[in-house]
Nucleic acid binder design. Structure first.
Lengths: 143, 143
DNA sequence: AATATTTATTTGTATATACAATATTTATTT
DNA sequence: AAATAAATATTGTATATACAAATAAATATT
């Protein structure tokens, strides 16, 4: 183990997970003022922006499985940050007074996150990397 | 929600997590012949290559927290795929007969993973992306 | 030498995520 | 119209990961 670099640094599984963990930690920090972890913050933002969005739409928007979204919504509903309304086989999700009030804090957290990333990677590098990662995620998830 | 693209695609937290989930699923599939999930496979490979490696060295090698590595080692020891030996305040980790025998299957899984990634992204794109992600992960985790 | 500090690891507990199985509702086919 | 299939969401259960606290050992300080 003399090398500073991991022998796995050539592996996309390894690297992408390492980056995701780091980013998650940073995002948790940035959304802390809203007392929400990142995924919850994203759900609240999406619902605020799109009242009545379906649970399944949230799942594909966030690239999460339906069951994961259900779990997120459960917790958010407990905290009165969303309201679920069953309609046939679908579930519509609505903002609440509290979630609307929280929206600015969440957006500020999001901006703070962006700022911190750019501070480390630079604007250009950051944008390019993000775009590349997003495209790859799309392609690879199509299998 | 007319857009195909998520409004979050510009966010590195979002994109990197999406990619990590996809990659994890793919890696799970590739390591399935060894009956190991990816992180466990990486630990076994590292220990086989580096008998007597410290628990903490594994942690920094894999960019995981020490506690996470302890948990991985617990499970692997139950399955007789590593042996832990306490020495002072450190813990040395050794391969077992079974883990050595499994090594080829694991490496094949790893190669299969690489092949699948390249099949989707192409060789060049894949290498560049991985390198970029790894560098970013390093920089960002230094905070 | 005795005490305090630092280092390495392990536990207790919590969380985000997913898969497989199960409703429930809508659409399709016979 | 009845039967079958497809779509949507929810549950039961499992897993990887981390944080904070606890332990234990090595080092430094008084």
């Amino acid at each position: 183990m003399k090398d500073k670099e991991s022998p796995y640094c050539k592996c996309l599984y390894y690297s992408s997970n390492a980056l995701a963990r780091t980013m998650t930690k940073m995002a948790e920090d940035c959304f802390a003022p809203a007392s929400l972890s990142p995924s919850y913050a994203f759900v609240v933002m999406s619902v605020n922006k799109n009242p009545g969005i379906l649970s399944g739409e949230l799942a594909s928007l966030m690239m999460l499985t339906p069951s994961t979204v259900t779990r997120l919504l459960e917790k958010l509903e407990e905290r009165d940050l969303v309201k679920r309304v069953s309609e046939g086989r679908t579930t519509l999700v609505f903002p609440t007074r509290a979630s609307v009030e929280l929206n600015d804090v969440i957006i500020q957290g999001w901006q703070e996150l962006y700022k911190r990333i750019v501070a480390v990677l630079g604007n250009d590098e950051s944008e390019k990397l993000t775009a590349g990662i997003y495209k790859a995620a799309l392609k690879l998830s199509e299998k």
